[in-house]
Design a protein around this nucleic acid. Structure first.
Lengths: 189, 189, 189, 189
DNA sequence: TATGAATGAGCCTTCATTCAT
DNA sequence: CATGAATGAAGGCTCATTCAT
């Protein structure tokens, strides 16, 4: 009965998507350390289903952000082409990156925690965002000049950290600080 | 019996110091959310002793960092006098601040978490470090010029965030990023 | 799979009942303040299971006694109809109430403790037993006459207190004292 | 140096009295299960001093109430002589007993708990209050007539229980219930 | 494959009790 | 004798994780 198998697969995929959507919502509200039970409840599934689809929390975190990460990476070449200068492109891209990060409570801290379970996400960012960022930085280096010692990875970690917000340090503050950091990255020619 | 009382007090002080030392060490290894039991074990005391001396975790965290915070604050006016320029003083001071923060895993995140129990520490930093930093920023503003929107509090939060290190983002990286942020804070005039 | 779900639900219900039975037994032996762990051990389950079924101690206490309370309340109208006089009915009903209370070590004290967590139980008794008792008292007042100032609530509190037994004051003593109290409640007219 | 010994003894007695006073106050506020530390703090002494003078909590409870118990016992013969009838004397005496008990939060429950550590207090009451009460009951039996099965001990336990007050059952309620109980004890002959 | 009941480790916190000074 | 710092047992509660159905 190939059809029934297909139906099952479709259903399984639906379940998986539901968990992802729920996890994304819960992560925004409670941070990436939210109890698994909360995610399962929000998705309307049992905790076992969450574990079946995402054996570790890192798997779930990674899956939740994969699409956004990919989209963010894909933005880089587009901005580079459309912008007046490489540095403008970089600024616009980091803006998008900040928008991505700023609602992910605890993600920056989690990334910086060295938690071995988050290597998947770490690798994902290395594989997609870092090259995207590097493209922009290379263009800046060729065009405007860039201070030495500014690697794509380090810059993204720094930006990620600057996006850890709180009661007296909000998204606007984060954007301002990131902008200043980027300004500092330009060579003074 | 003043002597014996004195002996007891000295011993108590020794115990308290031991707890503080143990807590400082455990905080470096595990972050400020480390189990109280671990701290007690490291100090070679019972958990009750930790609670006797520091009823809340925030009391302990605050006590651990109070001296370093005070020392850091006291550094500001000295640097301002000794340095060639206010901006140099600011750079040197942030260097010291980074040195203070960089081993305090989770402190930055904890400060930014809005945890009500850590308001003591928050207040301590507001009361001591922010004014110290503000002095330097004011001098910079008067001398070199400073981009608008850079408040002492926001800058320190940003620096605090930049000091959340990890496997591929170490103290040197943090210092470099902080330096770039400061550069970005200078008015280009 | 409706069957398997049914099986699970049945098993869950069995577990819940087991916890209730265990709690009832432990309450008799140790009082309603017995450690949750003891109840879990007696039921042969983990503490988590107790908490899953009864998030607070009050939930557990209430559940343990709900059936008996309901049964006791339901007894009142029956006795009123079957008995020769309202006062006889009241006497029989309080006998049943004493039988209910006398093995519940600490329940009377707990009810009187003002513990906010036991408001559920307090409310349960107010909502079920007090009206039942009031019915009987009203009938007595109409028929035999009753001394003033005897409210159902106060009377039940008094009876509850009289049922706190001990080594030299047992159930028979409690019953005798309650009987004397009721006698005292009759108007001598 | 006999004087210095005397001075020490006086001082020791002073300390002991201070602890008793403090314990009495704390018992009124928190009940007889109050933390030893609270009593020590209130007395301005160390916990060790409390333990030295009163090795067990029961020792302390007993000592605290001994004077009041003795006074209450001494009241019985006086009332018997001064009152118009034995039953009036009994009523007045129980009133005094209620006044004694009603502020002793948890004492009634403690007495009824069967706690072996409170046997001292138990014995104290058996030795002093029960005979006093028995005198009154005997007089009532001779004069008014008294229902059978009312022993001094049981009656006092019952009264003790009736004095366990709470938010909706206060001292006035307790007095009213005790009065009704006593009324019930009279033979209707 | 999905479920969610059950488990139990782990952390928190309080307080009775001891004992060196 | 008095002190109170230190101890650690005891109990509460939460959640990650497993597994029978």
């Amino acid at each position: 009965m190939p059809e029934s198998v297909g139906v099952r697969q479709v259903q399984a995929q639906r379940t998986r998507s539901g968990v992802l959507r729920a996890a994304a919502a819960v992560f925004v509200e409670q941070g990436v350390q939210a109890p698994v039970r909360d995610i399962a409840d929000r998705a309307g599934v049992g905790v076992g289903t969450v574990y079946r689809n995402f054996p570790t929390r890192a798997d779930l975190v990674t899956a939740v952000y994969r699409h956004q990460i990919d989209a963010c990476a894909a933005l880089a070449p587009r901005l580079l082409q459309e912008s007046a200068s490489p540095f403008t492109a970089l600024a616009l891209w980091t803006d998008a990156f900040v928008d991505f990060l700023v609602t992910k409570h605890g993600l920056g801290a989690a990334l910086g925690s060295g938690d071995p379970g988050l290597e998947n996400l770490h690798a994902l960012m290395l594989d997609t965002l870092v090259p995207a960022c590097a493209t922009l930085l290379d263009a800046c280096a060729a065009d405007d000049g860039l201070r030495p010692g500014v690697t794509a990875y380090t810059l993204m970690r720094a930006i990620g950290n600057l996006c850890i917000t709180g009661p007296d340090y909000d998204q606007a503050d984060a954007k301002r600080m990131v902008a200043l950091l980027l300004t500092g990255c330009r060579s003074t020619a």
